[in-house]
Computed example of a mutant assay.
Amino acid sequence: MTGYALELAGIRRHFPVRDALGRPKGAVRAVDGVSLRVAPGEVLAIVGESGCGKSTLGRLALRLLEPDEGNVQVLGQEWTALSPRALRAARRDAQMIFQDPFASLDPRMTVAAAIEEPLILHTRLSRAERLKRVHELLARVGLRPETAVRYPHEFSGGQRQRIAIARAIASNPRIVIGDEPVSALDVSVQAQVLNLLMDLIREMGLAFILISHDLGVVRHVADRVAVMYLGRIVEEGPAAGIFAAPAHPYTRALLAAVPGQGAAEAEPIRGEMPSPIAPPPGCRFHTRCPFAVARCSAETPELLGTTHKVACHLAGELPPAAPFAEAHTGGERLSRLAAHFHREEA
Rank of each mutant, 00 (worst) to 15 (best):
L125R: 11
A113I: 06
R150W: 06
P118R: 02
G142I: 03
P118S: 09
R150T: 00
S126R: 11
R144C: 01
E117G: 07
R160Y: 06
E154T: 08
L137N: 05
R127M: 09
L125M: 15
R133S: 06
V149W: 08
A139V: 10
A148F: 03
R133P: 05
L131P: 00
E117K: 08
L143G: 05
E117N: 09
L143A: 07
R144D: 14
T123F: 11
G157E: 03
L137C: 05
R140V: 07
R140A: 14
G158W: 00
H135W: 07
S156A: 02
Y151L: 12
R160P: 04
H135K: 15
L143I: 07
T123P: 08
R140D: 13
L125W: 10
S156L: 01
H153Y: 12
P152V: 07
P118N: 04
L143W: 05
E117I: 09
R133G: 04
P145T: 05
E154R: 13
H122D: 05
A114R: 00
E146P: 03
H122M: 06
R140F: 06
L119E: 03
I115M: 02
G157P: 03
Q161N: 01
Y151A: 08
Q161T: 00
R160D: 03
E136T: 09
P145W: 02
E146H: 14
L138N: 01
P152Q: 10
G158T: 00
L137K: 06
L125H: 06
E116G: 05
A148M: 03
L121V: 15
V134Q: 11
F155H: 11
L125F: 10
R124H: 15
A114Q: 13
L137Q: 02
S156W: 00
R124M: 11
E117C: 10
K132Y: 04
S156Y: 01
R160N: 12
V141T: 07
T147H: 12
R133N: 07
E154H: 11
T147F: 11
S126T: 15
F155R: 12
R130H: 11
R133A: 13
T147W: 06
R133E: 14
R130C: 12
E116D: 14
A114Y: 00
L125P: 05
L131A: 14
L143C: 07
P145R: 04
I115T: 02
I120C: 10
R133I: 04
L143H: 05
